[in-house]
Write a protein that binds this DNA or RNA. Structure first.
Lengths: 298, 298
DNA sequence: AGAGGTTACGGGCAGCGTAAGGATC
DNA sequence: GATCCTTACGCTGCCCGTAACCTCT
């Protein structure tokens, strides 16, 4: 008889327009996909997928079946959601995270997810927002916390939190206590996020607009940025919210200034097509966690 | 992951209130049922069935799951119905039939079912209506064509056709050509359906109301009834519609009489709970076949 | 020739049936 | 002790992965 596995396979073959990609997605081999589709077609007695070279696409009846299949899969998920014990939610959610979040509320999130779904495994990947976005699109990740993309994005998302960004320097550097101007700052090396990031670009433009072109040390690792600031190598441009996690108290000072730095707006995003249902749950917890965590901090 | 087999098993365990009976129904062993239910409960992380001695019943959450399960199974059937090739409809329908129907439009029905669903197997059981009704209730049959039960019935049904009933005798018996009275008929032995049938009872009452008590030979086999009539043993009380199937043309004559014999009202009936979807299709074809077949005959 | 789907074939494991075990009347 | 569900265990058949094959650009 027709089973869910065959329907799920069919959905992915149609959505990804490829047997091979569906196999990757479902962690199996391509012949297995061929077999499942062939069997489904046999059970229904009709052709569901047209395999012309250069186009794997659903037949008209295949599209009908696709509708049913999606409803069936959704209804099953709904059932599990409605009556299932959270402890029965098993599996792995691959979670991509921007480093700023690692150093703020990620531990709180992990704790909450563990409490709500004790058998759910989180696999956390830290990367910059651009890479995270790509990895969502290619379905390497089930969920990601990243900077809101500037333009249009093919992945759905919800806002999470915003962090202010500030100039921060070692107390040892003897910088003036009173408000400091941009050209004074530019005398020092600047230490911040890596080159391909939104804040880096914004910062370089800010200086350029004022005719300045300071040395900017970029690092993909926030911990390294903070380390460099602590060592007095330069002035860091980072969200102060991360400091209490990675900097010894009082060793770094936020500089007073009138200069406006753009805030970092984080969102939670997920792949477009139906995917891991657990990921949706984690997303909900993330929204709640980010809200409470950034109400106290800033 | 939860699959249809587990859901179907759950539905039957709840409906039949027994693991053992569900096993019989699903043609498997009782431990297999135990295992499927245990696994379903494990996947959902909740208890679905309370196994007290003297009561196997769904828990409250179990009832919720039952609702989902039934909708899922129904939706899958709907999908197959909507897009499936009829040739893909495989399986067996156990069909209970009253003998009168065997001798009228049953062959036409079989032909039509074969044309519509070439891979569907019909298993035909001939029995009297009372037995057929019981066997439907006990789910020994997927479908039955029987006399409309007098009172309330626990099985759903739809009307099929009605047959007139007449007095029929061998031409050799030299009975008067003109209309014959009941007391004249009662001088001969009567040959008809067996004792526990509706027509037999109606016939005996008819005679009794007129103070008559003729010899009534009862036979479970209509062919035998006709044989006896042909041999001149007595006057048969049967639906004339069957004659052209089992009696040589012209050897039996319908007697003219003013006596009103109750008609036989046949219905198609099926078990209450969701069952073989093919049976529903056969029922539809039966309704159509009975209509056209009895438009010409009577 | 290389990308992508199908066919062939051997192996692993889920799920089955048999049989024994426990609970409850 | 009878009935009915559960647990134990060996086995079978299905499905998967590897590999060879086919087809089309």
């Amino acid at each position: 008889m027709i089973d869910f596995k065959a329907l799920e396979t069919f959905i992915w073959v149609v959505n990804l327009r490829s047997f091979r990609r569906a196999a990757e997605k479902l962690n199996t081999t391509q012949p297995a996909i061929s077999m499942r589709i062939a069997q489904l077609e046999d059970l229904l007695g009709i052709r569901l997928i047209e395999r012309d070279r250069r186009a794997v696409a659903a037949t008209p009846k295949g599209l009908q079946v696709l509708g049913y299949a999606e409803r069936l899969i959704r209804m099953r998920a709904e059932m599990i959601e409605a009556v299932g014990d959270p402890a029965a939610m098993r599996g792995i959610v691959r979670l991509g995270v921007s480093e700023s979040i690692v150093h703020t509320w990620l531990p709180a999130l992990i704790e909450r997810v563990n409490a709500a779904y004790p058998n759910l495994e989180l696999e956390i990947e830290v990367d910059d927002s651009a890479s995270l976005h790509e990895r969502l699109v290619s379905r390497d990740l089930n969920l990601a916390f990243l900077l809101a993309p500037a333009g249009y994005s093919s992945v759905p998302s919800r806002p999470l939190c915003t962090f202010s960004v500030a100039f921060v320097a070692s107390a040892r550097m003897k910088l003036p206590r009173k408000a400091i101007e941009l050209n004074d700052i530019a005398r020092w090396p600047i230490v911040t996020f890596s080159r391909n990031t939104q804040p880096y670009i914004a910062l370089r433009e800010l200086f350029a607009r004022n005719g300045l072109r300071p040395i900017i040390h970029a690092s993909a690792s926030l911990a390294t940025v903070v380390r460099m600031a602590l060592d007095g190598i330069g002035i860091a441009v980072i969200p102060p919210a991360i400091l209490k996690d990675i900097a010894p108290a009082g060793r770094l000072r936020r500089l007073k200034t009138k200069v406006e730095l753009p805030r970092l707006n984080f969102v939670v995003a997920w792949p477009a097509a139906p995917d891991n249902p657990a990921a949706q749950k984690v997303a909900e917890i993330a929204v709640a966690t980010a809200r409470t965590a950034t109400k106290t901090a800033a």
